[in-house]
Nucleic acid binder design. Structure first.
Length: 807
DNA sequence: GAGTTTGAAACT
DNA sequence: CAGTTTCAAACTC
């Protein structure tokens, strides 16, 4: 089954389509059984794998020495999962790139089934320790889907479904997955283990045991392996980081043997599962079904990847990540690698990850395009087992619900110069232990630091990847996509797509950055947000972002900063170097493309707009507006200035301008504004914005000169200001020179303090006498005037005295 | 800062 | 798809 229809694929950004095709081939031939290893042996956590279909299951186990199924990966790509444990689990893949899985210290992996019913209900079940998921790794998509099953019941359901999902079982409470972006960028999956001992962390709600966390980080990068550290909140310590399981997929550059690549995930492929007809009812791609009983709420995270070719698409493939009994936090960060011209073969990766009470659905576009991740969570109470919540589907029909989060539960933070929006999703009802104060967790990435939510009933920690690291991995933010899904016990979710996606439906991953999707009805506290990829860059500047306010989102505006997206193809550095201009919308409610903020996928912040709906408080309207825009133009949120055929020099407007009177030499012209020349697709009249245009050259020359002047003036002002400040701070005025010292030279520190005391005294006096504010201000100003007069007088006297002495 | 110009977006 | 209207930014004074 095709996850994404061809139509949808056509709508995808070019960069997505350009990705190398990595073909995930069902591996019927390898009939290996899923290996299970339960180092922990914790009773609470089922150690055995529930793999009805052992052959096609993908299993991650620390101890498992076997890997069963070959996972076909595009020839260039390599998937590696490493854990500290030395037991290598290798997964043979049909393709040359080997997939190796090594278990984490105590983690065990069990394969389970995940079923997606035609009705759209997918249930992934397994023991807490089990990860069940139809597992698909498509190099093209650079995503790895893990499905985590929370409850054994879910496992049962999965079995019933009959799909041979690939199961990844992890005892650790944390799962970190890093996906590779396009061109040869490694995908790293890290499965941090909450506790050194398996099964220990499973106790949910235990303050001592960190809440289970699941993190997926997709970083576009070259072949180099960069284990992203997901510091899942506080719980990931440096030591823990070492325990993380890392799956790395490198395109084109297979990991050298010398490379410390260890595979912690064993992937077994069930031929049945691979078969389209899979016993599993056709899974609606991208559709997330959440079933949870009040007692055993289940959460499913499904990642699906669209295919351009039906052959490549593997319906029913799912990767399940073993759920955590304890409230789990899921963080997914994916950064798409720079676009590659690789074949557009895509592999559908529907992944369902059931995490205890959460269901996360992620669909990935066929290409290396920005990773798309959708997360929906439903409250366990409202959702019955078997009940499904659709979070994003390939087809619009699959998109059952997108509901804005309750305003009080959402906070947005925008960081200037960054494409990322920080979104805080708070569930008031639940208090999570995730906020445990811990030093900055360290991961394989040393600089990575978690965002810590210190206050509020719900605390959410978002691993922040230092910009440096991110840059290394994803040098080109524009093409890269990052998604972060954070699920805490409180059911918080954060999704950060790197780049605006053309469509909101059926794949909600197409939502523009900053989009926050609310949980399905009844889902209550859960929501998900789409955040721009440069989020990571922001992190660099502020390693810790505190999303802490228990108060409602509106109150959090103070911490909001403006996030920006690259404008019109300008380099990220260009766009991020200066803050975006505030909008002044008055009639559009900032929900139309007239609004630059909205058009850039940003929330309005510090703008001058009136009746603004471009914020989390009006997420419903915003989502609707986004959908409307995407319906009208699937590429509405794509950068208008796309890459040219060969580098930036060929950048051109995707649609071309239609200027009539400006000669395309004013900023009215989008081409000119983007500092690019008009092209053949432009419909402008009287265009003067071409290479040989003398007017253009003159303008450019003048513009350059003006810029230089501005810089010089700025430098001069800075210097002058510094000098004045330095002069004022001098404590000892120089009066012996006999020169004409100005009065301010007598404004020494002592004089300033005395003046301030006088003013304060005056203020107190006014307050004691209950003077009106205006009168109080008058009194203070008068006092200030007196002070000045005394200073001037003293200066003059000193000068006179000095002169007399000299005489 | 107010008013005008401009062209993209939205609408018909 | 073309024509018109709406809108907000760019620009002018």
């Amino acid at each position: 089954m095709d996850v994404v229809s061809p139509e949808l694929n056509s709508l995808l950004p070019d960069e997505i389509m350009d990705t190398e095709a990595i073909e995930d081939v069902p591996h019927s031939h390898s009939g290996t059984t899923a290996t299970q290893s339960e180092p922990s042996g914790d009773t609470s956590v089922p150690m055995e794998t529930d793999t009805p279909l052992a052959t096609e299951n993908l299993t991650l186990s620390s101890e498992a020495t076997e890997h069963t199924q070959a996972v076909s990966i595009s020839t260039d790509s390599m998937l590696s999962i490493s854990s500290r444990s030395q037991i290598p689990i290798s997964i043979s893949s049909t393709s040359s790139p080997p997939l190796t899985l090594k278990p984490v210290l105590a983690t065990s992996v069990a394969t389970t089934k995940t079923t997606d019913s035609v009705t759209g209900t997918s249930v992934t079940t397994s023991g807490l320790q089990k990860l069940t998921a139809p597992f698909t790794i498509s190099p093209a998509n650079h995503q790895i889907i893990l499905n985590k099953v929370a409850s054994s019941q879910a496992t049962e359901a999965a079995k019933s479904s009959g799909t041979p999902p690939q199961v990844i079982k992890q005892e650790g409470q944390k799962l970190l997955v890093t996906a590779i972006g396009k061109s040869g960028q490694p995908i790293v999956l890290q499965l941090p283990h909450t506790g050194s001992k398996p099964g220990v962390s499973q106790t949910s709600g235990d303050a001592k045991s960190p809440a289970p966390q699941f993190k997926v980080v997709a970083i576009g990068g070259r072949s180099e392996l960069k284990p992203l550290m997901g510091s899942a909140g506080n719980q990931v310590t440096t030591l823990q980081a070492q325990q993380l399981k890392t799956v790395q997929i490198a395109k084109k550059t297979p990991v050298s043997s010398a490379a410390p690549i260890k595979f912690i995930i064993t992937k077994t492929v069930n031929s049945k599962g691979l078969s389209p007809q899979a016993s599993v009812p056709p899974v609606i791609a991208g559709r997330v079904l959440t079933q949870s009983s009040p007692v055993m709420p289940q959460r499913t995270i499904s990642l699906s990847e669209t295919h351009n070719t039906s052959i490549q698409s593997i319906p029913g493939k799912k990767i399940a990540i073993s759920p955590l009994k304890t409230p789990s936090k899921v963080t997914v960060v994916s950064v798409a690698s720079p676009t590659s011209n690789a074949s557009q073969k895509s592999v559908a990766l529907p992944v369902n990850v059931a995490l205890g009470q959460q269901i996360l659905t992620v669909q990935q576009s066929t290409s290396a395009s920005p990773v798309k991740l959708a997360t929906s969570q439903t409250t366990a109470q409202n959702i019955k087992p078997g009940q499904s919540v659709a979070v994003g589907g390939v087809g619009s029909s699959q998109f059952k619900t997108i509901i804005p989060l309750p305003q009080p539960n959402v906070q947005q933070i925008q960081v200037p110069g960054s494409r990322f929006h920080y979104v805080r999703l708070v569930t008031a009802t639940t208090a999570s232990s995730t906020g445990q104060p811990s030093g900055p967790s360290t991961s394989s990435i040393q600089t990575a630091k978690p965002m810590v939510v210190s206050t509020g009933a719900v605390r959410m920690s978002v691993p922040i990847v230092p910009a440096q690291t991110i840059k290394q991995v994803a040098p080109k933010p524009l093409t890269s996509a990052a998604q972060v899904v954070t699920t805490t016990q409180t059911q918080q979710r954060l999704i950060m797509p790197a780049t605006p996606l053309p469509q909101i439906q059926p794949n909600f991953t197409n939502l523009p950055p900053g989009t926050v999707l609310a949980p399905a009805p009844g889902g209550g506290n859960v929501g998900y947000a789409v955040v721009p990829a440069q989020y990571v860059t922001q992190l660099q500047q502020s390693p810790f972002v505190t999303l802490a306010s228990s108060s409602g989102f509106p109150a959090a505006t103070g911490i909001q900063t403006q996030a920006r997206l690259p404008l019109n193809g300008l380099s990220t550095s260009e766009t991020t170097s200066r803050p975006r201009k505030p909008c002044n919308c008055t009639k559009s409610q900032c929900l139309k493309l007239y609004c630059d903020c909205f058009a850039n996928g940003e929330f309005c912040n510090n703008c001058n707009c009136n009746n603004c709906f471009n914020n989390l408080e009006h997420e419903t309207e915003r989502l609707k507006a986004i959908k409307t825009c995407l319906d009208r133009n699937p590429e509405a949120f794509k950068p208008k200035i796309g890459k040219g055929k060969e580098g930036e020099s060929d950048r051109r407007h995707s649609k071309g301008c239609n200027c009539k009177r400006s000669g395309c030499l004013k900023n009215y012209c989008e081409c000119y504004e983007a500092k690019i020349m008009c092209s053949s697709i432009c419909k402008c009249i009287g265009c003067k914005n071409f290479e040989e245009s003398p007017e253009r050259k003159t303008l450019m020359h003048l513009a350059d000169a003006a810029e230089v002047r501005v810089q010089q003036q700025t430098a001069a002002k800075t210097k002058l200001s510094s000098q004045i400040s330095d002069l004022l701070m001098r404590t000892t005025p120089v009066i012996s020179s006999g020169g004409g010292r100005l009065p301010y030279t007598f404004v020494t520190k002592e004089v300033l303090e005395a003046t301030c005391e006088c003013l304060l005294e005056q203020a107190k006096k006014a307050e004691q006498t209950h003077q009106p504010q205006a009168e109080a201000e008058r009194m203070i100003l008068e006092e200030f005037g007196h002070c000045l007069m005394r200073i001037i007088s003293s200066a003059g006297k000193a000068k006179a005295d000095s002169a007399s002495v000299s005489c």
